[in-house]
Design a protein around this nucleic acid. Structure first.
Lengths: 241, 241
DNA sequence: TCCGCCATTTGATTTTGATCAAGTGAAAGC
DNA sequence: GCTTTCACTTGATCAAAATCAAATGGCGGA
């Protein structure tokens, strides 16, 4: 029976993996016990403090990661310093760009985080032998592509107010997908990061926060904690369907 | 010998496929002669006039396509009509979003085009059995993701002038990758489309064209034909590295 | 406790690009 | 051949967001 076989296999799964919250959510779910053992031999967990860089734009990719806890921001920087956040990744997302030597983006912990690293060549080898693993990575890439395109609409066509509301809505729906109540959360980004995500300045972001607060769309405590009394209303402010 | 075996296989490849320009560039390159025969049984080529819709936002996906000729634009529309082009696809790109029932975007011929359609379920079945095919689609998704993120920087952080220069540079480098001389080409998009791609109005796009023309960065004939005397100079105007 | 720092907010002014409105010019139809 | 149409350009004005500048307020360290 399927359940029985899984139980047997479970007993061979590395302890760290069995205790791992991303065991099924990340890429690891596609692997057999045997493969997990191999991957585990080379993988290592790391804590990242806010601001810690996972990889820099233009650097050689040596590791892929699973995000175990926290939020990682993906940014692009122009020569003159202008900056754009092109993606936010939440646990238990896979982090990395397969099949590319050099990273086109910087990945940096937006909050205190924890990641599980595996060497690029080990996972690459595993991908070649495990169609199910490539399938998982493929799905992850498509998810990120959908998200990127959604955000292009926000960047290109929304007003400052709609952008800020869109951001709040995004965080509310991503930060803790488990929790029933998405209406109260801590922002994982500073005002400067939010500005870089929305293509605005920090002043404009701040003013829009104030406006949304005065119109009772949100409440703010300590700058970072937000409550949303009516999520549908926030959604309307975001002009998101 | 590898070459020999391929020759033998070639003789079994459907005629239409053997004559097909996208035979190796699209997804078909991952398939055996046998698989090509099967796919070919259900596939059909279509001409698309400018403006013809391949699929609409919210519609059920019934076909995937290879673009044989022309340029296809991917757009998102808001409830109030605001519109954003979130991607341009050039021959011989694969067109479609695997693993999703409903399309999140509209795909529409930007120029007179030609596509090769195959039913979704046939390709889906083929993907399950052919890791090499999924690998190709995976790579295509990652390429599109890279492009989307590059464009997010353009949308979020560049000025109108930089945006228009970035667009011209993109077209110059994509429209005809074969040609040695990329310095002269026809624009595949109208001013309105360009505006929707750049998150600007047509008036602003037009003014920036005029400015670039007056500064001798480009020359324009008949509104649609552009020559670039110095590609590096255009690149600098685009603030692209 | 007080100081200094840093993130954030708020205010005044400027700038960029949007909007509104009129032209221009080339191709299609009568 | 003339008109109509449509895409595009150009001009004048407006508004949204950027910029410049100054508060505010919480927090950690002396």
């Amino acid at each position: 029976m399927e359940v029985r076989r899984q139980d047997i296999h479970n007993s061979e799964i590395p302890l760290v993996c069995r205790a791992c919250e991303a065991r099924h959510g990340g890429v690891c779910g596609a692997l057999t016990a045997e493969q997990l053992v191999e991957l585990n031999r080379h993988s290592s967990r790391h804590r990242l403090e806010t601001g810690a860089e996972v990889i820099g734009q233009g650097e050689t990719v040596v590791n892929y990661s699973n995000i175990m806890r926290g939020v990682v921001k993906l940014t692009k920087v122009m020569a003159d310093g202008r900056q754009q956040i092109v993606g936010l990744q939440f646990a238990p997302d896979f982090l990395g760009r397969p099949f590319l030597e050099e990273s086109a983006i910087t990945a940096e912990a937006a909050t205190d985080s924890e990641v599980c690293n595996f060497p690029r060549h080990v996972l690459d080898r595993l991908v070649k032998r495990t169609p199910e693993l490539e399938h998982k990575l493929h799905r992850q890439a498509l998810k990120e592509l959908d998200e990127a395109r959604d955000w292009m609409l926000t960047l290109g066509r929304k007003t400052a107010q709609e952008k800020v509301a869109s951001f709040l809505y995004l965080i509310a729906t991503h930060i803790d997908p488990e929790s029933v109540d998405q209406s109260s959360f801590d922002l994982p980004l500073s005002r400067a990061d939010i500005a870089d995500f929305l293509g605005l300045t920090i002043e404009t972001v701040s003013r829009q926060f104030t406006k949304l607060r005065k119109e009772n769309v949100i409440r703010i405590e300590n700058n970072r904690h937000v409550s949303v009394p009516d999520m549908d209303r926030l959604m309307r402010y975001a002009s998101t369907d």
